[in-house]
Design a protein around this nucleic acid. Structure first.
Lengths: 250, 250
DNA sequence: CTCTGTGAATATATTCACAGCC
DNA sequence: GGCTGTGAATATATTCACAGAG
């Protein structure tokens, strides 16, 4: 039988970062305005939002799909299709109204909701994330920190105290966090993930290089930094065919 | 004209993190053993590699596509297809030999090459990355740090001194770094990116939430942490349709 | 005439399902 | 019998190209 008790007893795991995994595809229910957004389009919305905010800040009122697309790093046709499936607010012959679009896309990405985040694992990465201003500036509020290491619990980081990981349930209940960031080492990641799920968190951003098992209703996105570098390394190497042929053929 | 001089004069920009962008598709030259790997498959290789290393560590010698796929969080058919396009080392009726597969996939991801990394931007995130053990354990060596802030330059972080960002060219030439990690704030990111490219770096991992412009031969992958949270927020919200309908319809 | 919205065409990716080998 | 390798079928995503609104 080889692999033995495969990593965990639950369902198949979610692999995030848009590495397309056989997600069972939640059939088109939901909020989708016109025809629901494709998964790929959803991944582009945050970029669109950022570009719109930048345009707005510069006082731009209207933008064509060509200029918008250029700034977002996509093709104009795709951008139009994405916006169109959002319900489309463009005017033919003119372009898209920056303000209205912002007001439409923002809520779609939950900007108007409560978005409280708990970070578990306050090592180097966890504390960097806790201090990172980018979350706050985009409407996410870090409301709690937790770590399994007793040496850290009780300490403060900015305005937040670090709670013991064992008390995750209570901390989440008290703070109302709905998003969990898992910045623990690989060995603890599944356990922490389980605790988050147990406490009712349904969105998890996972930095640990492991495939987490979660129930279907929980969304996991993985950020695997080493994997990113490996993918870059792969491409770098394709540019110099000879180098590897020797290695692999050996 | 609206957007005006769109963000940068160079070519269209690369959006990484596998958000599939209209990459001009480098036509199938290169190292690919059998029929070349799809971009999606390439993104899964690091996961496969990690699983194989774990199996190897546990002393597992052979693994079936079903068990392997389960551990990697993908479907067995996809895993077989991916491995098959790598040149396939499986044995029918038996499974895949862990050791040989490792020896095959490793080099494909550049594990046997020199993989020297320079980190630019030694703020919270940059220093967390510099201290992160995960890179080293997967064969990446951080050989240089740089920052534009004069208050930081000259300081040390672990065994490395922080160089002034202005000297990136020299630092890269001296250390032979081929991969650049851009952990600078959004406002500086394009400038740093330009400097990296100028210095001959052709692989960039970008954490700044901006669309970088680079020449065609340079590969960029973006890790946008806020975007990840926004995508989670989007999905979380789809689970509660009513909440947003009110917001958007307003 | 410009620029959006969108069906149709194409390109990619994933899954099925089964032939063929161990 | 069990399991891989892979063509064919399906599902997703992207791009084209043009009708039609302003």
């Amino acid at each position: 039988m080889a692999v033995g008790t495969a990593l965990h007893p639950r369902s198949a795991a979610a692999l995030g970062t848009s590495l397309p995994v056989p997600v069972p595809r939640r059939s088109a229910s939901g909020t989708g305005r016109r025809n629901s957004l494709s998964e790929a389009a959803i991944g582009r919305l945050p970029v669109y939002l950022r570009v719109l905010q930048e345009l707005d800040r510069r006082g731009v009122q209207t933008v064509s799909s060509v200029d918008f697309a250029l700034a977002a790093g996509v093709g104009p046709a795709m951008l139009r299709k994405d916006l169109s499936s959002l319900g489309s607010y463009g005017t033919r012959g003119v372009g898209y109204p920056v303000g209205s679009l912002l007001a439409s896309i923002g809520p779609v990405l939950g900007m108007t909701q409560d978005r409280r985040v708990v970070i578990v694992g306050v090592g180097d990465l966890g504390s960097a994330l806790a201090k990172y201003g980018g979350f706050g500036s985009r409407g996410f509020q870090i409301v709690a920190l937790a770590d399994a290491d007793p040496a850290l619990t009780g300490k403060r980081l900015g305005s937040l105290a670090i709670s013991p990981a064992q008390e995750l349930g209570r901390v989440i209940a008290e703070t109302g966090a709905t998003i969990g960031v898992n910045a623990t080492p690989a060995a603890e990641a599944q356990q922490v993930c389980d605790a988050l799920v147990e406490a009712g968190v349904t969105s998890i951003l996972n930095f640990a290089p492991v495939v987490l098992s979660v129930p279907q209703h929980v969304h996991v996105r993985n950020v695997d930094l080493s994997a990113e570098l490996e993918i870059l390394a792969f491409h770098a190497q394709r540019s110099r065919p000879a180098a590897v042929a020797a290695e692999v053929g050996r």
